[in-house]
Amino acid sequence: MAVTFECGDIFATPGIVALAHGCNCAGAMGKGVAVSFKGRFPVMYDEYRRRCKAGEFTLGDVFYWESSGQAVFNLGTQKSWKTPAELWAIDKSLRETIRMAESKGISEIALPRVGAGLGGLNWSSVREVLQSLGSSTAIHLRVCEEYVEGRALSL
């Protein structure tokens, strides 16, 4: 398929069964969109934190979590909340996310501007990675390029 860059709120978009977001590998979800993931999926957060503490979630990894028909791809993009995201880790974790989604029959994933907010990366560099990956898969990557609280994603 392709990647689309949209406006809205990934959590307010009906029918989205798979979400992805960038995470640090230190076990903290205390700022940005991660706070929303932590609040909506506390069981997922507990397992994420456990994996980080055990050294089982590192840069470039993907922690896949699913419950009650909702899937979340946690992407290891930052070593800690104190360090910037790493573009190679975003690329690697997104490639693995796409591979996993294809094997699970997931056709669409919604995600925020991974690595370009608190991660500190230049959005145009991350956008290029997303465009490249989107052109090589049947998975539709719906990227929330402009956040509008409570509004469903749209072009």
Rank of each mutant, 00 (worst) to 15 (best):
K79G: 11
T137W: 04
A28C: 00
W123C: 03
N122W: 01
V72C: 09
A34R: 11
V126H: 02
G39I: 00
G117A: 11
V143G: 01
A12Y: 05
S103T: 14
G119K: 12
S132Y: 03
A152H: 00
I98F: 01
R40H: 07
P14R: 05
R142T: 02
V129N: 00
Q78T: 10
F63Y: 15
Q78D: 03
E145M: 03
V62I: 09
I10L: 15
M44F: 07
R50I: 01
V43R: 07
R95E: 10
C23R: 08
L130Y: 00
E102H: 13
Q131M: 10
E96T: 13
L111W: 04
A26E: 15
R151T: 10
T58C: 07
I106A: 12
S107K: 11
M44D: 03
C52R: 04
P42S: 07
G22P: 07
W88G: 01
R151A: 14
V3Y: 02
S80D: 09
L94Q: 01
M29Y: 08
T97A: 15
V3T: 14
E56T: 03
K104S: 10
E47L: 10
D9Y: 09
G134Y: 02
C23H: 10
E108C: 13
L59H: 10
R127L: 01
G76P: 08
L141S: 11
A71N: 13
F73L: 00
L133I: 01
S80E: 04
A101P: 11
K82R: 06
A138T: 12
I16F: 09
F5C: 07
G32Q: 07
L19P: 05
N74W: 02
S154P: 01
F41H: 13
E108L: 13
L19H: 14
D61K: 01
A85I: 05
S154R: 14
S135I: 02
G8W: 10
C7R: 12
L141F: 11
C52A: 01
A2T: 15
Y64Q: 11
G117T: 11
A12V: 12
S124F: 02
E146C: 11
K104H: 14
M100N: 12
G120H: 03
G119R: 12
K79S: 12
F57L: 00
V43S: 09
R49L: 07
M1W: 08
R95K: 14
Y64M: 07
T58S: 14
G115E: 04
E102I: 08
T97R: 04
A20V: 06
E56D: 11
E96G: 12
S80F: 02
T83K: 13
T83I: 06
A101I: 06
E66A: 15
G39K: 06
G120P: 03
A26Q: 09
G119S: 14
L75H: 06
T4F: 07
F63H: 13
V62G: 10
M100G: 03
C144R: 04
Q131I: 09
E86D: 06
C144S: 05
W123A: 07
A85G: 13
R51F: 00
N24C: 12
L75C: 09
N122P: 05
I139K: 06
I10Y: 14
E149W: 09
S107T: 14
N24I: 04
L59C: 06
L155P: 12
F63R: 02
V3K: 04
L155C: 15
M1I: 06
M1F: 08
S136F: 00
E149A: 15
G119L: 10
R99Y: 04
I10F: 11
G22N: 02
A34G: 14
M1K: 08
V62L: 08
